[in-house]
Design a protein around this nucleic acid. Structure first.
Length: 599
RNA sequence: GGCCCCGUAGUUCAACGGAUAGAAUAGAAGUUUCCUAAACUUUAGAUACAGGUUCGAUUCCUGUCGGGGCUACCA
């Protein structure tokens, strides 16, 4: 049990004895004491004052006395208004540092038992006719980081990707390539496969748009009708029909073009540093949902309309009916999601299934959960939509169809290029070889980008302005990486022998303000990890690490580590720096960001 | 129209209902004989508006204004 937990327990006990009533643990608010007050931890007493009908001041006093008597580490307390400030004995902080200074996995819970049920996290989920853009970057980084955070919090995790590789939209890019491609390939054009296919999708849409406009003008059709009647659309539907019928020519082209796309995606994932444990393809799974729906129909859980379409009645939750099978028996998006959920459940028997999907699909996931409930599926309650906000451009939402996107590859390349220029300008690392320099610049460039995105609360929309490049100074990834490099530099100078020496005895020496606040900061890393796992929020880690670095840089500026003449004090600061470095590294690892030895 | 989300310094982001709303950046002024100045210090600057709930509201409720999303036999 941590000290915080023991204090909370003591408070609970004390109040129980004083008032004869029990208080919920989560009603006991213990926060860090603000800098302007004396103490380490602060208990907010107001809520209890009200319940016990006693004035806050004296009550705080009484609780303080009780806690000091029960928790050994609490050596002093003071009351300010309705706040009870508790001070821990300095030796507590020192022993904390002593036990953790060399702990490479500080902040991480031990790996889970084999029999523990995993959490399945789906993220990325690309569409094979759209190259990845900034919106996908947020999805990928979030999803990947959340899996690392869950692992650090002691969960077993499976990372899955669901590739949307079939449907009418895929036929569109195929059709455009068949009609106008003249046999182009990634090899013949030197283009990345996903980009090449994406270009044909855009080409289809723009040609279709022309046809639609002409039909509206000449025949007076409505937009919808014109879209339906446009020759290109008719051909695309015919292509889909042939695909579903297994036409060898069509599936051959489909396989070939998909292979191009996957090669392109792989390159992008590699650059981003993202990996998966399992990749699902909708073309493999889309029929499964249909069977489940038919089964549900035969069990009387669903309704069939006169035209043959199948619906789920969600009026119990004040939602509309939801279509699950069209009149012609084909499936819709929701039908597929039912199938993939089932498959995932069968494959992993998870405790939870998390979907990292944008908040534009909030309604969809609400409905999915309800539909699975109607179907009586045991995993209906396991579905958890990790809903994140859009990345907006200054002119609004990104739209693939209109080509208004920030391309993922381009953006990453620009970041690396900026890193390269900055590294050269500063000229601090001449001793590295070309390969090392390249990988350093990659680390810094990607670090800046990833941090920029992950520091924002996932739930919130965020803005990206392409004309203002992402910063490398201030509240940024490179700032954190730089702090790490500084610390590593000290570690190298100190040498392994000194680091391995017994922990210094400081005697009666009082830690200075910076040392103490650094220690407290380090101490709260574990809590930050647990909180981030509970909230699915890498932003909490990002902001924690930043705060830690700011704290360290102030300390570094004000006090010397290796040049401190008092040897034991110098050793203490060395260990303090060491744990700071480890914590920065471990924190950044949870964000999928590397930290350098030098920069 | 109905439903949901969001309005915090010029800008981008913080703040379990808790003490004087934090940072960064842009602006102004400084710090290099000292372990990496991608750093540090000082300075100025914000809760859209109007009510309510409470010991206490950026946070919860209501209304107004502003922005975004969803509301497909698209995915």
């Amino acid at each position: 049990m941590t000290v915080e937990e023991r204090i909370v327990a003591a408070v609970k006990e004390a109040i129980g004895e004083m008032a004869g009533q029990t208080i919920d643990t989560d009603q006991i608010v213990l926060q860090k004491t603000r800098k302007e007050f004396e103490g380490d931890l602060t208990l907010v007493v107001f809520p209890f004052a009200k319940r016990l009908g006693r004035p806050p001041g004296p009550l705080a006093e009484a609780i303080g006395q009780a806690v000091a008597g029960r928790v050994r580490e609490v050596v002093f307390y003071n009351v300010a208004g309705g706040f009870l400030n508790l001070s821990l004995q300095p030796a507590y902080w020192l022993s904390f540092l002593e036990t953790n200074a060399g702990n490479e996995s500080y902040g991480y819970r031990p790996a889970p038992e084999k029999e523990q049920k995993p959490v399945v996290v789906e993220f990325s989920s690309p569409n094979t006719n759209k190259p990845l853009h900034l919106g996908h970057i947020r999805n990928n980084l979030l999803g990947f980081s959340v899996t690392r955070i869950l692992e650090a919090a002691g969960h077993s995790v499976v990372k899955v990707n669901l590739v949307n590789d079939r449907g009418i939209h895929i036929c569109k890019s195929m059709l455009a390539w068949m009609k106008y491609g003249k046999g182009e390939t990634p090899g013949s054009t030197g283009k990345k496969g996903d980009k090449l296919v994406g270009d044909y999708y855009v080409k289809f849409e723009s040609l279709l748009h022309e046809q639609v406009r002409r039909l509206i003008d000449s025949e007076g059709f409505s937009e919808e009708e014109a879209r339906n009647r446009a020759p290109l659309m008719v051909e695309a539907r015919e292509l889909l029909r042939r695909w579903e019928a297994g036409d060898p020519e069509v599936t051959g082209i489909w396989k070939m073009m998909n292979a191009w796309v996957y090669e392109g995606f792989d390159a992008t994932y590699r650059k981003m540093g993202i990996t998966f444990d399992k990749i699902y393809y909708e073309s493999d799974t889309y029929l499964l949902g249909r069977d489940i729906v038919r089964q549900g129909l035969s069990e009387g859980r669903l309704e069939k309309k006169d035209d043959g379409s199948v619906w789920a009645d969600l009026s119990l939750w004040k939602l509309d009916e939801k279509l699950l099978l069209r009149a012609d028996g084909t499936s819709v998006y929701m039908t597929q999601d039912i199938g993939t959920a089932q498959l995932r459940y069968d494959d992993f028997h998870p405790e939870r299934m998390i979907y990292v999907v944008g908040n534009e699909q909030n309604y969809h996931f609400d409905v999915l959960k309800k539909v699975l409930t109607v179907l009586g599926k045991p995993y209906a309650g396991m579905i958890c939509h990790l809903s994140y906000g859009m990345v907006e451009l200054p002119e609004g939402k990104m739209k693939s169809r209109e080509g208004k996107v920030v391309d993922a590859d381009d953006l990453m390349d620009e970041m690396v290029e900026t890193a390269r220029r900055t590294t050269e300008e500063l000229g601090k690392i001449q001793d590295l070889g070309q390969d090392e320099t390249d990988s350093l610049n990659h680390m810094i460039g990607l670090g800046a980008l990833k941090y920029f995105i992950l520091k924002v609360d996932p739930k919130k929309n965020m803005l990206f302005n392409p004309s203002e490049s992402i910063d490398f100074n201030g509240h940024t990834g490179p700032f954190i990486q730089y702090t790490h490099a500084r610390i590593r530099s000290i570690m190298r100078s100190a040498g392994t022998e000194r680091l391995a020496a017994p922990f210094p005895r400081l005697g009666e020496r009082i830690l200075n303000e910076k040392e103490l606040s650094l220690l407290k900061n380090l101490h709260s890393f574990e809590g930050a990890v647990v909180e981030a796992a509970r909230e699915f929020s890498p932003a909490l880690i990002a902001n924690y690490v930043y705060e830690l670095c700011r704290e360290y840089n102030q300390f570094y500026h004000e006090y010397s580590v290796l040049n401190e003449p008092d040897r034991s004090l110098s050793d203490f600061r060395l260990q303090l720096s060491r744990l700071t470095g480890l914590t920065i590294g471990n924190g950044m690892k949870l964000l999928g960001i590397g930290v350098p030895e030098k920069m």
